[in-house]
Simulated scan of single mutants.
Amino acid sequence: MKVLEVLHTDRVDLALEAATKEETIQEMAHLFSKGALLTDEEAFVSAVLEREVHSTTGVGNGIAIPHGKSMAVKEPAIAFARLKQKIEWQALDEKPVSLVVMLAIPEGEQGNTHLSILSEIAVKLMDEELVMKLREATSAAEIVDILG
């Protein structure tokens, strides 16, 4: 499964307002709920927050990739947010985060789906030029093109 198959313009927010990691995850979960991808938003948010307890998803360079597997997720999906203000995420480089790519994975999905999407996103986000384009994009369609 490829990023382009699971990222759509209706799950992109270029000016997300949030003050904390938890608030960001909650707001991004709404993007999945609006698309009818979750049967239980609260259960999904809990799964993502539980994942954060084990180790941070703040990968550095102002980027976080929170993700959760849950029975509440109907099909694999990605949401993208550019935050209006940087927030603390306990990132590996100890710097605040301004770009968030969140993955929603059904509990029943094989590890391969989860790992292939996560791997593809992580590799793309190591490209400094691509990250700069994400920071400067002016539309959801641009974001999908850049990450796709």
Rank of each mutant, 00 (worst) to 15 (best):
K2D: 15
E5N: 15
V6K: 07
D10K: 03
D10W: 00
E17S: 08
A19N: 06
E23R: 07
E27N: 08
A29N: 10
T39Y: 03
D40F: 01
D40Q: 01
E42F: 02
A43F: 02
S46I: 02
A47C: 12
A47D: 11
E50Q: 14
E52L: 13
S55D: 11
T57V: 01
G60M: 13
N61V: 05
N61A: 15
A64Q: 10
A64I: 01
I65L: 15
I65S: 05
S70D: 15
M71C: 02
M71Y: 11
E75D: 07
A77K: 04
A79E: 12
A79H: 07
L83M: 04
K84L: 13
K86M: 11
E88M: 06
A91V: 07
D93C: 08
V97P: 10
S98Y: 05
V100C: 06
L103P: 14
L103I: 06
A104D: 11
A104K: 14
P106T: 12
E109N: 08
G111Y: 04
H114F: 15
L115T: 04
E120F: 01
K124M: 12
D127A: 09
L130R: 13
M132I: 09
M132W: 00
T138L: 00
S139M: 03
A141T: 01
V144R: 00
L147P: 01
